[in-house]
Design a protein around this nucleic acid. Structure first.
Lengths: 119, 119, 119, 119
DNA sequence: GTGGTCTAGACCACC
DNA sequence: GTGGTCTAGACCACT
């Protein structure tokens, strides 16, 4: 599904979380689609089920994954009851944009880039 | 100049680096402006000069700070030799935008936001 | 510090989380005060450190606890970056109040109760 | 009447119970009004009659529903024999209010909120 | 079979 | 010493 980088500073569960989130928001995994079971993914990636479980829990909290006991875990549309992730993303967006503008990017350039992403 | 958060997960030198960069890209510190000496800043913030030194070195690498032997360090326009920071920012920008679009933000909305940043 | 109820439907880590949160919001543990270390609390309650760790992590996410690696965990003022907990509490408040009003409680009665709490 | 969420952590019968109670306390179902029969509701929601039955029994215990043999179940004013629900609600109310006050809400603010609920 | 919880024991980086 | 991460293996309730 994806590969882990043991040299990465990020802990494994965070890498798993980030990769899965990426697959969902890019549409590679569609909303409602069933994800591999905790055990299955742990086996296929040769890591401990608890580590996968932790990643799944974090994604559930962000609203990108919805577990159903006894049935499996399913991709969801990212409605974290509150909007904590949304707030964080907007902050990151503003800071990144500010720095890119400072580095000489034109607003139009970034807008265009924006529209071409994920197409 | 700014305050440190000892409870922050980021190491101190990284906080210093991020804060200084933020001051530069938002224009709070203008290009060409002289920054406090390593020792002066270390004293005023009550931390080890080595920590400040490390932050300054990292910023120099990113091109936001240009040291002049015997005179001090000056804010610069952010031309990092290899363009690694630029690459990183664009990657962050794409990922953040992708996720925000997935969460339902309209491209126009983000464009508007983009243009209003830093005004 | 408090006692666990093994008959409770709530998992242990949730009981720990709820109890600690209660101690903080009632002022029994003051903001900035150091909490027992993960290991210390685990030992004193005769449960696994991982279980305590899990409770601490959840509280950190809610903003009621702020861990400092190598130093300990400290009570905090509940600023969860977003306000997810705040949203949840308001929803609970509205629902509970609605039902109490339906059951015949006068608004004034609940207001008075409100003001006397935590005194 | 309302929709079930099969991904919800709560068991189905509890969702039914909570939804029905909500309809009663908000006045959407008026006191004395007849509710659908167990079988009718089970059919319309495509779930097992036993599940509905269990929800109805729980609501009867809380006093929000009063069955009349041979005629059906009718919404009632919520006088639970032992007052256990009332006690539970007051406990929840106190805890929620305490935490909201800790988070900076003013008592007046909550009082106002209280009075505007359900209007 | 699935997710959810818990235990026991280990290693790391930081202070 | 502290928090943070990971593994291995176990049990539960529910489908």
């Amino acid at each position: 599904m994806f590969t882990l980088n043991y040299r990465d500073a990020r802990p494994i569960y965070e890498q798993v979380k980030d990769e899965l989130r990426h697959l969902v928001v890019t549409g590679a995994i569609e909303i409602g689609e069933k994800l591999p079971s905790v055990r299955a993914m742990a086996t296929s990636m040769a890591i401990n089920p608890n580590t996968i479980q932790r990643a799944y829990e974090a994604l559930e909290q962000e609203g990108y994954l919805s577990p159903v006991a006894g049935k499996g875990s399913f991709a969801a549309q990212g409605r974290d009851a509150d909007g904590s992730r949304r707030t964080l993303l907007l902050k990151t967006f503003d800071e990144t944009a500010t720095e890119l503008l400072f580095l000489g990017f034109a607003p139009d350039e970034l807008c265009t880039r924006l529209r071409e992403v994920r197409v």
